[in-house]
Each structure stands twice: as structure tokens, then as C-alpha cells.
Amino acid sequence: NQASVVANQLIPINTALTLAMMRSEVVTPVGIPAEDIPRLVSMQVNRAVPLGTTLMPDMVKGYA
């Protein structure tokens, strides 16, 4: 099963992502692949992401 990127904390809108904000977890539906975590660092979210939410490509500016 593919691990996805999950929010490790509440991430406010327009926040630049850091490693501490993300974790890898096997979830359904599948979100951004966990191997993309290094690429996500310093990218901004375009909405508030609650703790435990799977990051989807449309939630991260410049990812999709």
C-alpha cells in the first residue's frame, strides 16, 4: 500500500510546509505520495489543513 502525506498538526492557510508538519501514513483515499515530502518543504497550503488530514495535490500551491 502506498503511504500518503498526512498533516501532523493544524496547518493554517498560506503556511509554508516544514518536515515537522507532515508524516507518512497509509490512508484511503490516497493523497500526495510520502516520497514527495522533501519536495513539499517550503510549499504553501492554500487552505487550513486540520491535524490528521491527508494532503491532496490541490491543497498545496504549485504542487499539482
Rank of each mutant, 00 (worst) to 15 (best):
N1M: 15
N1W: 10
Q2G: 15
Q2P: 15
Q2W: 11
A3G: 13
A3I: 11
A3V: 09
A3F: 12
S4H: 02
V5E: 00
V5R: 00
V6I: 12
V6L: 09
V6Q: 05
V6T: 12
V6N: 02
A7Q: 01
A7S: 09
N8W: 14
N8P: 02
Q9W: 15
Q9T: 15
Q9N: 10
Q9F: 12
L10K: 06
L10F: 09
L10P: 14
I11Y: 01
P12W: 11
P12Q: 15
I13L: 15
I13T: 14
I13A: 12
I13D: 12
N14P: 00
L17A: 00
L17T: 00
T18N: 05
T18E: 04
T18C: 03
L19T: 14
L19M: 13
L19V: 07
A20D: 04
A20M: 12
A20E: 14
A20W: 15
A20R: 13
M21A: 05
M21P: 00
M21L: 08
M22R: 00
R23C: 04
R23Q: 04
S24L: 08
S24C: 03
S24M: 07
E25M: 07
V26T: 07
V26P: 10
V27K: 11
V27G: 03
V27E: 02
T28K: 03
T28V: 12
P29E: 14
P29I: 10
P29W: 04
P29N: 12
V30P: 07
V30C: 03
V30D: 13
G31I: 01
G31W: 02
G31T: 01
I32L: 05
I32E: 00
I32K: 00
P33N: 11
A34M: 08
D36H: 08
D36L: 10
D36T: 12
D36C: 07
D36Y: 10
D36Q: 09
I37M: 14
I37K: 05
P38H: 13
P38E: 06
P38A: 09
R39W: 05
L40P: 00
V41T: 10
V41L: 15
S42H: 10
S42T: 14
M43F: 12
M43Y: 15
M43Q: 07
Q44P: 06
V45E: 00
N46I: 15
N46M: 13
N46F: 14
R47Y: 14
R47T: 06
A48D: 09
A48Y: 13
V49F: 02
P50T: 06
P50Q: 14
P50N: 13
L51N: 10
L51F: 14
L51V: 08
G52H: 11
G52R: 05
T53P: 01
T53L: 10
T54L: 08
T54W: 02
L55P: 01
L55G: 00
M56V: 14
M56G: 07
P57F: 11
P57W: 12
D58N: 13
D58I: 13
M59D: 08
M59E: 03
M59H: 12
M59R: 03
V60D: 01
V60S: 01
V60Y: 01
V60Q: 00
K61V: 11
K61Y: 15
K61W: 10
K61H: 09
K61M: 09
K61I: 14
K61D: 04
A64C: 09
A64F: 03
A64K: 10
